[in-house]
Design a protein around this nucleic acid. Sequence first.
DNA 1: TTGTATGCGTTATCAG
DNA 2: CTGATAACGCATACAA
Lengths: 329, 329
Amino acid sequence: MAREHSTPTMADVAREAGVALGTVSRVVNGEQVGEEFKARVEAAIERLGYHYNSSGRALRTDRTNTIAFMIPNTINPYFALLVHHINLALEKRGRRMLLYFTGYDHSREIELIRMAQQNRVDGIIALSYNPSLTIPEDVPFVTIDRFFSASVPCIAADNFGGGYLAARKLSEFGCRHLAFLRIGSTLTNEPSKRKDGFVAACVEMGLPFEIMALEDGQPFSEFENFLAGHLHGGRLDFDGLFVGTDSLAWRIIRTLRKMGLRVPEDVQVIGFDGIRMFGDLEPVVSTIQQPVQEIAETCVNTVLSKHLANVPSLICLPVSYLSGGTTRA
Amino acid sequence: MAREHSTPTMADVAREAGVALGTVSRVVNGEQVGEEFKARVEAAIERLGYHYNSSGRALRTDRTNTIAFMIPNTINPYFALLVHHINLALEKRGRRMLLYFTGYDHSREIELIRMAQQNRVDGIIALSYNPSLTIPEDVPFVTIDRFFSASVPCIAADNFGGGYLAARKLSEFGCRHLAFLRIGSTLTNEPSKRKDGFVAACVEMGLPFEIMALEDGQPFSEFENFLAGHLHGGRLDFDGLFVGTDSLAWRIIRTLRKMGLRVPEDVQVIGFDGIRMFGDLEPVVSTIQQPVQEIAETCVNTVLSKHLANVPSLICLPVSYLSGGTTRA
DNA sequence: TTGTATGCGTTATCAG
DNA sequence: CTGATAACGCATACAA
């Protein structure tokens, strides 16, 4: 047959085992097959080093066992963490991950969705703040942190609860004048609820607070100006800061120290995300920790669920406080 | 035809455009087609929202345009960086990335290679120190940092040169007594040449030095004991440390500070990798920076090259020194 | 229970 | 330059 060098196919196995093609397929798929036949097929598979061709299977079944994960990048440690846990959750369910980087590029995201459809992925998990994204109808679609519509399930941390918790904690640790700092998309999304929870707690506790929010393009120096404007005689007006992300918190802390302020002695700082040094060492800052593993597993379970229709359209998962040395606890 | 809900196929497009199936294929693949026909096909594609099915194409052409990348995890920032640049390099070449985590598990790695073959990937890029890994013959295979055999191209940073550079830099910054600290696989691999380069430079400069190398399972406390044993009257025997990775360097620095030593005033420290805070801010420690982007692009170019046979079996890419505040420069 | 035969969507070969 | 048709490897409905 001259098919020596090519990888063996089911037909080859069938010939080798002296059975029919269909029987091989049944053995490979773990269906009921007579002992004798099964043994012969398995021996032939072993002998030939056969492994099934997933293109053929995909074409026939119209299922690729592959999920696309769209994320801005993998350099941001929080995104890297998500990739990690989503991949693990997918493997647990016998699925593969096709990884797409959006680079925060809106037109690219649209193109990537098209590519994912070409690849006939069984579902898409996306983290995108793209306001003009149209979600395809014909493929299960789940988003992280961004609510699109009731028909597109959104998985997120309890951002409101996190903001609330942060304010509570700062108060508990003795802070009397708080501020919330953030930079990000102007789009209303789940993370923007961090502020709302923070405000709710401050109001509830009767604590004075201020909000300083930058839009995506604005320079970091705006924060420096803001803080400098609140520095009087070497003392800052605030003794507790809640910052939108750990990444920003880190930069803010550097700025504070450059201004001669001590953290946490003079100002306590809580970030958001739960980033750890080198991924597994101590937290970078005191923080509200996202339940990344639960988020990942929920995404996977949701995107793979048979009936996307009767799945909740917004799932918020509980956060927790994690001390990282930038608070007095 | 009752194929309403299903995604359209080339046959549908052909019918819609009133041309033959083959003509549609030619248009989709950008082959020579008459103006009139081409226009009609493109219109039909637009009208139907057709996009090609890559399973069908893969089955037919035996090429998936997919490369598997095997890496321990994505939590380690260096690995995350690699994932990022390899994905970008693949996209530039029109390929997709299938991401597999090994978790440093040897048997898992073997299983993953099998899975990659099932998925008929066009190639595999792997970062693995598995000593018992057998590389498949029938799929292009490229490794990072680990040389298997002359027939398996290995891409790595110039680890020897990096070690050499580190010792040179420490000397240049005034160090007179150096030490090299490392933990890792006992297997001889590219990163283990960091020590060799370091030693070569020390010998060349006539500087005294010591080596402290732990194997993978050993506890970090061994380093603490080592350092404590070299502390006399509040002074450390060494004024310059070269540490195998930034991650370890970070932990070592914490230990030094706990011992009452100042970095870089009393001891200067250089790590290896080039990890930055949150992926894009300042370096975590002074370090020998890996050329991650070049490594990634070289991996991709190599694994996609037509004739793997006449590709060099070991490619070392130049490193550079990067100051991160733990040296006096 | 096992064998046979068809078609999934595509590309490539061959006639026209 | 275009149309028809045969594989690619597999799962599955149907026949034995």
